[in-house]
Design a binder for these strands. Structure first.
Lengths: 193, 193
DNA sequence: TGTTGAACTAAACGGACCGTTTCGTTATGT
DNA sequence: ACATAACGAAACGGTCCGTTTAGTTCAACA
């Protein structure tokens, strides 16, 4: 593809931003191209023109690398709507999220992270205690606002949020992210009652 | 553990039930012991005293083997309650299901199957078109009955079912299957409105 | 100015699995 | 009697893991 043969030597006793960028770019590119199934540190290193030890130095396991390459754009890419009703907000946000997952390789990152969490305790911990809280903070705002508007009681915020999250996971994990899924709006209706 | 050195030779031009049983038993045992992370066909073959080609002959991929070792007891183990309200039925069934997943190695089978579906197209197809329809048939009955009782409209049956499924997946995949999860009944309430 | 130390890549390591092939054996069905 | 098919053992080539060794490049510091 690109002219890759240029080798990056050390730039001294500090982390090389070029190497970091090259690794992330290669990882994202590889995921977009082959999906999680074809994803390996070995191949990332090859494409990035980086040494495996370098990768292992900065990202001790796959989960950390996934988290690093996810998240970069998500917050920017998906605005949190505020259209006056949870129903409208959820509908828009869910559609945006699914489109993002379909088109941005981020869906594959996400699927990979969940899969990885089934084989690695570190990945599971990272998923539960780092990734999820971080990533759920902004969609949670929609539920908080709805409760403030009186659409439901404040104690229900996190329960409703979790039901919505489970719904999304089910779809991403079974590879059903078509935006026009007819039952989408029906399910969101149910979540807003 | 047990006296394993007895070798099962071929019993002629037909499938050996002993081998089949030994493979399933070894697979279940291995999953119970090490979880999905430590699960490999290689190790199953070792423990079962079986040849890898034999395993690959009868179960062309891991997903098929998972499906075979799941399901054996689930229907028997989890009765579908009929207590007059979806709320009561779901509460009981979900608690039973989570206990089953916690205690029976079946949870690990299930997690493994979902993880496998993220790396293998065959596994994904098996999950979507074989495992899920089969396994969801009996819990679905609870929702059908509730609709018949007039708790909600019949068109909502599968949407509510899917929300419930997503909720369960989220918990099994993040390793949160404690029976007394306080939010469990609150979420089930939400699903019944 | 010279030395120390950390970050870099390349190469190779032992080990685990994958999925397949080859082989000799065993018993069935015809 | 003979083709057929399933069996286990062993080994194949291959991929990837996570680590180690070795030689380099450069910044910081004395």
């Amino acid at each position: 593809m690109e002219p890759k043969p240029k080798r990056r030597a050390s730039i001294g006793a500090r982390r090389s931003p070029e190497t970091e960028a090259a690794v992330k770019a290669a990882a994202r590119e590889l995921l977009a191209e082959k999906g999680y199934a074809g994803f390996s540190i070995e191949e990332v290193a090859r494409r990035a023109g980086a040494g495996k030890p370098t990768i292992y130095r900065w990202w001790p396991n796959k989960a950390e690398l996934f988290i690093a390459i996810y998240g970069v754009e998500k917050d920017a890419a998906i605005p949190v709507p505020d259209e006056g009703s949870l129903r409208a907000d959820l509908l828009r946000y869910t559609r945006d999220l699914w489109r993002f997952w379909r088109e941005d390789a981020a869906g594959r990152v996400f699927r990979g992270l969940i899969a990885e969490a089934q084989t690695s305790a570190e990945a599971l911990a990272a998923l539960r205690f780092k990734f999820m809280p971080e990533r759920l903070a902004s969609p949670r705002r929609m539920f908080v606002r709805a409760a403030e508007r009186g659409e439901f009681s404040p104690e229900e915020i996190d329960d409703r949020l979790e039901l919505w999250v489970g719904f999304n996971w089910l779809h991403v994990l079974t590879d059903r992210l078509s935006e026009d899924e007819p039952s989408l709006s029906r399910k969101i209706d149910l979540l807003c009652r």
